[in-house]
Nucleic acid binder design. Sequence first.
RNA 1: GGCCCCGUAGCUCAACUGGAUAGAGCGCCAGUCUUCUAAACUGGAUGUUGCAGGUUCAAGUCCUGCCGGGGUCACCA
Length: 596
Amino acid sequence: MARTIDAGRPDVKRQDQSMESPIMNLFAEIRALVVAQLEAMMAEGVLPTGLELAAVAVEPPRDAAHGDMATNAAMVLAKPSGMKPRAIADDLAARLMADPRIAGADVAGPGFLNLTLSRDLWAGVVNAVLNEPAFGQSDMGAGRRVLVEYVSANPTGPLHVGHTRGAVFGDALAALLDYAGWNVTKEYYVNDGGAQVDVLARSVYLRYLEAHGQAVSFEDGTYPGDYLIEVGQALKNKVGDAYVGQDERVWLDDVRRFGIDAMMALIRADLAKLNVTMDSFFSERSLYGTGLIEAAIADLDAKGLIYQGTLEPPKGKLPEDWEAREQTLFRSTAHGDDVDRPVQKSDGAWTYFAPDIAYHYDKVQRGFDELIDVFGADHGGYVKRMKAAVSALSDGRVPLDIKLCNLVKLYRNGEPFKMSKRAGTFVTLSDVVEQVGPDVTRFVMLTRKNDAPLDFDFAKAVEQSKDNPVFYVQYANARVHSVLRKAAEAGIDITARPVLEDEAEFAVARKLAEWPRLVEIAARNHEPHRIAFYLYELASEFHALWNRGNDKPELRFLQEGNTLASSGKIALPRAVSVVISAGLGILGVTPAEEMR
RNA sequence: GGCCCCGUAGCUCAACUGGAUAGAGCGCCAGUCUUCUAAACUGGAUGUUGCAGGUUCAAGUCCUGCCGGGGUCACCA
């Protein structure tokens, strides 16, 4: 995947601004300064040599009154150095003060070192946002190859709301990792090999008979959904009456293929509505008869992890029809699972777990450095066994992170949204996207942590007020563009170096400076929701600044009759727009330039 | 019964590989529009972070045990 995040960055020439290098990640740079000073202290014998500095952090303080940044250096080094935190902090503070970027360094609390930065730096941050296309991006991923598998819904019908959350989450996570320097592949695993696609085939066959005028009923768990009517009709158009009255053995393979193709076309169309794109689709069926499952199991066998055995009955309530069976088992307990898992049934057929192992074996074989699976929360029980499988197959080299997306509860004006499963009708991805649009759907789905349940209210999602985070963020961006349009009319140079004076302006600039750091935190934790929360906070700072123009006209971005002052003021809102656009780009949301 | 997730203000939720006095929004009260869009902003009250221990200089965060909610649990995928 290419770096397709369009930050909406205006095409401007690089400002000629002395020899200073652009401020790409202020927190990383100040941390580097702190570390350098600590190393100097070690070299001079003030601190013992060989101290581990990994735990030294430079963070935004919880309370802005504490300064611009805080470091825990003195506290984490106190014990290993055998020194008092304040002694370290005092010495470190004096050294940091020698750097022109540091305007203040105060020891506080148990040994925190609060740093106040030179005011000039903030304009440099704004400048970097505007002129450095890579601002916010990170090389944290170092080009490592990561496979993000998501959606992976059974090809038996349209995607529903639950899938929608997984689709949005996976897509945003993939974009986030891409932005943070990983080499990302997005993949959909097509479960076209199990019994449920046979059920699909029989359901399609019923609709086919129906298209031939026969009365049919959907029993034995066949799918009654309307979406198969046209598939049955299409099958009729293709094969005429060739399968009418024929035994299943005659038509099953062909109808199954036909049904799966139709369902995957449906699913791809659903994903397209959400602007979700996959790099590849991996067929479960392609694992059968090709030796891939056998190869994966053989790999485990070679590691002594496959054996014939009988599982204990589950603890607690004993299923009534439980009976001991000897099966082929994977010794997943050797890699952290609670019990060993069957890979072959007693009749020798593969269990569903075997192709899953083979699929992940294939992922490892393809050379990915990291794997991420996005599942629904109802798959929580498979986490340990899949991790065990990947650990075994890769000899612990390839980490697998499994992100579980919790339920989506639908509401309309606070009232739960009923759906009837019995009638085969359920709220689909299409239903949601057609009502609120892809941008709103995506943003709302990302305003919760993946493992927390999500309430989705159709009415609130499209409400145009500050109560709606989607709108709130979009509106901030629209306000900036309103200013830019007016600036263009007034012939104002919008490429001048930023001039910051007011506290509210510095507050916005500080928030902008956090962006690269936030990207890394979100990427490291595989938590794209952090982007959404950050954008809300940035928009909030921006709206606050905007409204300060009410009380203090000199803070308005456009200064009546003073194009020079306007030029200096306008850089900050432009930078806000750049970061909002970049952030929304990661979430897959189009930044609106005006609200209607 | 086993395993996994969750439990934070009246409500919905944040909280950075463990950091300072746990933060937002909603709701409630009081203010701000001859304006670059008031679709916004400003100020005010709210906590035994489910309970009890433990580790640590420092715990909402890590460990143990309980309580409550959800998910899941032997040839189904």
